[in-house]
């Protein structure tokens, strides 16, 4: 007790200075999180006070066909968009890393889509591009191909959103580019002298050397993809249609909370998502010992 008092006296000033941040942490993160955990065990419609229902929200999920559909849609989206986006980003970074003149200009240009990628305007643009009379179909018409209505067909709607995600490759690209600059040139020289071709150099030198960056990008983009919301919301008019084909997990969560007034269920969904992302991240970290190479 004595030591605690002493420590407090010594650190009180520091806490005082920290307090604006501490208040923010408590008020904006910690308290809402604890509240949401509590709500996830209740039936809460926002008008009347929450009623404790135990695990009901969690067990109900697995009988909810829309919930299961949203898991399927989100999984496909993450599995497709993340690898494609990273490959694309790495490809462009490799091209830009060859001592191009005007590198700064290109880097900025390729980064631009990421800047407004999550925005409403781009999602609206996507509707125009992939609509029945959109630009894509007009282009196809020039070659005599009759395109379908990409956005509003259940078989293709999700893939237009995958393309939208891949198109926003700017952020991982810039990080890859920075990583590529760190690879010592001597390694390539030595490899060339030993007769290694371009492909061998890429797989034996470049990839291992930037593997920590790959790990970072992979995790960040996976989290990002799991939490994707805006594009599906705008493109499907908030419904996740047609036929639930773009019903992202977060979109369904939003519907549950704000159109069906089922806050408890939505809170439970949020916690499942958090746990799922945590587990996946942990697995990737676990395997990373096998494929990530740290110098020294």
């Amino acid at each position: 007790m004595q030591t605690f008092k002493k420590a407090w006296r010594r650190n009180a000033v520091a806490y005082m200075f920290l307090s604006p941040w501490l208040i923010g942490l408590l008020g904006l993160s910690l308290i809402p999180m604890v509240t949401s955990l509590y709500l996830s065990f209740t039936n809460y419609d926002m008008f009347t006070s929450p009623v404790w229902t135990g695990m009901e929200n969690y067990t109900q999920m697995f009988e909810d066909s829309k919930y299961l559909a949203s898991i399927k849609v989100t999984t496909i989206y993450v599995m497709l968009s993340v690898p494609l986006q990273l490959m694309f980003a790495l490809g462009v970074a490799l091209l830009l890393n060859r001592g191009l003149r005007g590198l700064k200009f290109y880097r900025a240009v390729y980064y631009v889509p990421s800047l407004f990628g999550g925005s409403v305007a781009v999602a609206l643009l996507w509707r125009q591009l992939f609509g029945g009379e959109g630009l894509i179909n007009r282009g196809l018409a020039l070659f005599g191909i009759e395109g379908t209505n990409w956005i509003s067909s259940p078989d293709t709607a999700l893939y237009t959103l995958v393309i939208l995600a891949v198109w926003q490759f700017g952020a991982p690209m810039v990080i890859f580019l920075a990583g590529l600059k760190q690879v010592p040139l001597e390694l390539y020289e030595a490899a060339r002298i030993d007769g290694a071709g371009k492909f061998k150099q890429f797989f034996k030198i470049t990839l291992p050397m930037i593997s920590p960056i790959v790990l970072f990008n992979l995790i960040m983009q996976i989290i990002h993809a799991f939490q994707a919301f805006t594009p599906a919301y705008i493109v499907s008019g908030g419904e996740g249609g047609p036929l639930d084909s773009t019903l992202f997990y977060t979109l369904y969560l939003y519907q549950k909370a704000f159109t069906h007034f089922d806050m408890g269920y939505a809170a439970a969904m949020a916690w499942i998502l958090l746990i799922a992302i945590a587990i996946i991240t942990a697995i990737i970290f676990g395997t990373s010992k096998k494929w990530v190479f740290y110098q020294e």
Binding site: N149, S152, G237, P242
Partner: peptide, 10 residues
């Protein structure tokens, strides 16, 4: 058709 209908719905 369904796709056209969906597109113009909103």
């Amino acid at each position: 058709d369904a796709a056209t209908g969906t597109e113009y719905e909103s």
